[in-house]
């Protein structure tokens, strides 16, 4: 039988198989494809620069000497800069000489409308999602030209965590029914029963 021949071959020459595997290992590492993101569609970012209150910054900063040392700041600047937990100073992101620009870690300068390039330096996976539509908000149409909001449209770059805000009103209660808080029945659900059966003790 051909099948038994093959099996006996493997049992007779196990070291050959091992050698083959060892030889194949580096090759397989080299070929392990880096999961390349698909080429996303083109997009444009909603501009924000014209809505900035104090822009252009150089109105004041051309008369001020650049002071690179970290220190408490006063209005109109934020007193604290929670983003990064104290590791960042203004000039990490803002260009030292031309305050109308942001600076990348490479030294290149980008405008405030391209702030996403600054964010993407650290938040690479999030930036990839954003670039392809898995994160961030798209405006306008679902098809055709894609316009999306840049990072600072939703996140304050100096304190990026979103703050809780009030929800819209709850759905109306059907006429004649008690309010939902009173009619919530504290019964054992199927889920609790299953857990009770498995644990052998009462569900909370």
């Amino acid at each position: 039988m051909p099948g038994s021949n093959t099996r006996s071959g493997v049992t007779r020459w196990p070291w050959a198989l091992i050698l083959l595997l060892i030889g194949a290992l580096p090759a397989s590492f080299a070929q392990a494809p880096e999961a390349a993101p698909p080429a996303g569609p083109g997009f444009s970012v909603l501009t924000r620069q014209d809505n900035l209150v104090y822009y252009p910054c150089m109105h004041c900063h051309q008369a001020l000497k650049t002071n690179a040392s970290p220190r408490p700041l006063y209005a109109p600047h934020l007193r604290e800069q929670p983003h990064g937990g104290g590791t960042f100073w203004c000039l990490t992101c803002h260009a030292a000489e031309d305050r109308n620009q942001l600076s990348l870690l490479t030294g290149d300068q980008v405008g405030f409308d391209d702030a996403y390039k600054v964010c993407a330096q650290c938040h690479a996976p999030r930036a990839r999602d954003w670039r392809h539509g898995g994160h961030g908000k798209r405006v306008g149409n679902w098809q055709g030209e894609r316009t999306i909001l840049g990072c600072p449209q939703c996140h304050n770059p100096h304190d990026p965590v979103l703050v809780p805000s009030p929800p819209d009103p709850a759905p109306p209660v059907r006429i004649g029914f008690p309010p939902p808080s009173e009619r919530t029945v504290k019964h054992h659900t199927v889920w609790d029963t299953l857990q009770h059966d498995q644990n052998g003790k009462d569900a909370p």
């Binding site: 993101p37 698909p38 080429a39 996303g40 569609p41 999602d129 392809h132 539509g133 898995g134 994160h135 961030g136 908000k137 798209r138 679902w142 098809q143 894609r146 909001l149 939703c154 979103l162």
Partner: peptide
């Protein structure tokens, strides 16, 4: 929040397809 993604499932370049594949 931009939590909602809508698009054409037949378009390989659409946002919805990126979400489903990645």
């Amino acid at each position: 929040t931009g939590a909602r993604v809508f698009g054409n499932l037949l378009d390989p370049d659409s946002e919805i397809r990126y979400v489903l594949e990645n």
